[in-house]
């Protein structure tokens, strides 16, 4: 791969379990990290629900993947950005989330997006 490092941001705007996007986007994150790219994740709108702690998926017989967010730092994926406005609109705070994140305004998130090489949205 000739040592190319690009800034990849995975933009998550969808809630987990209702659709598969959250799960399959995590798989992309792990692969991008394995390629040693500069990976960050943005969570906004219903995407912030992905990080709500306490998933118990036994009742719907679907594999839960809350633990994967916690494992991201083992892959050196440490840039998780969450939109403050989206949290507030859903009655959530950073304490409700399963991993440490950087909470910022939508406008700040927008600026970070502008700095990326590749934006992948799921």
């Amino acid at each position: 791969m000739s040592g190319d490092i690009k800034k990849f941001m995975m933009v998550n705007r969808k809630a987990p379990y209702g659709t598969i996007y959250a799960l399959e986007s995590l798989e992309v994150v792990l692969i991008a990290a394995a390629f040693e790219q500069d990976v960050s994740l943005a969570f906004l709108d219903d995407g912030v629900y992905q990080l709500k702690k306490g998933h118990q998926t036994k009742g719907i017989e679907v594999k839960g993947f809350e633990k994967t967010y916690g494992a991201l730092e083992d892959y050196d994926v440490e840039k998780l950005y969450v939109d403050q406005e989206s949290l507030t609109a859903r009655g959530l705070t950073a304490e409700d989330l399963c991993v440490p994140v950087e909470v910022m305004s939508r406008a700040e998130l927008g600026k970070l997006m502008e700095e990326q090489d590749v934006l992948l949205s799921f």
Partner: peptide
């Protein structure tokens, strides 16, 4: 093929 092909596409 694998998901790596997507990341490679992003890089290249």
């Amino acid at each position: 093929s694998g998901l790596g092909q997507l990341i490679e596409a992003g890089i290249q």
